[in-house]
Nucleic acid binder design. Structure first.
Lengths: 120, 120
DNA sequence: GTTGAAACTAACCTTTTTGTAACTACTTGT
DNA sequence: ACAAGTAGTTACAAAAAGGTTAGTTTCAAC
């Protein structure tokens, strides 16, 4: 047995519409407040979703919540040192994604590829 | 702007319950027939789902379908040379996943982590 | 003294993803 | 003749993911 499917484990942690982006942002910005992170995420993640995503990432030990115990609240989120280890695959994913975008743009010029059946 | 979010592009291609695993299998086995691939995927992917996943992967240019034009049908699936480029991040993801599993096993021994609210 | 911002949470609803069961056409093995 | 295997597809159902709206508490600014 050589497979082990660590892949699935990683996907469980990183999959979905936002988790990857959140990690990526935190990898760049070091520390962000809730609403700052929210606004930095390309348009429109709702606070409900962001809160839930962060909770899950904290649960996986990747993100730390620093509550300055002030009122009105001041809370920061940052990657734990363990969280920073996700850089190992996030960088690779980012690289590939950028290349893939170009690849797709090139391929789309050619007709004859079987699109998702969009003509009913 | 430094981000570019290639991450999201990659996640769109690889996310979900099966796509990552399928790529991973094909990365190891070189070429697999439909039902062989199906059976190799840890239990239970339905043929409907597998067919759709493969279709999408073909659409992204990652997987090739080789139809031997016989009856009863004999069809093989394999990664395209471009598909093999996903190895760049799949290996990293697999590595991390394996480590993460161990990490999680260690952490679960400690109480005091905020689980997904499971006590109503 | 009303408004806005901070960091959320709760109730509710919609969309997307995933799964189940049955069925196609054709051949090989018993 | 009948079961089983090939590579799928279709119609339907369930579950998961994502989103919307409103509301909480407290302070600072206008």
């Amino acid at each position: 047995m050589e497979s082990r499917v660590g892949i699935s484990v990683t996907l469980e942690v990183v999959c979905g519409k936002w988790k990857g982006l959140i990690l990526w942002k935190l990898l760049q910005d070091e520390s962000l407040r809730f609403n700052a992170l929210r606004r930095s995420l390309d348009g429109n993640i709702s606070s409900r979703i962001l809160a839930r995503e962060l909770k899950q990432l904290m649960n996986d030990g990747l993100v730390e919540r620093i509550d300055h115990q002030t009122v009105p609240p001041h809370v920061e989120y940052r990657l734990s040192s363990y969280g920073r280890s996700t850089a190992s695959f996030l960088h690779a994913m980012n690289q590939w994604g950028i290349k893939h975008q170009e690849e797709m743009r090139a391929v789309q010029s050619y007709p004859g590829r079987t699109g998702d059946e969009s003509t009913p």
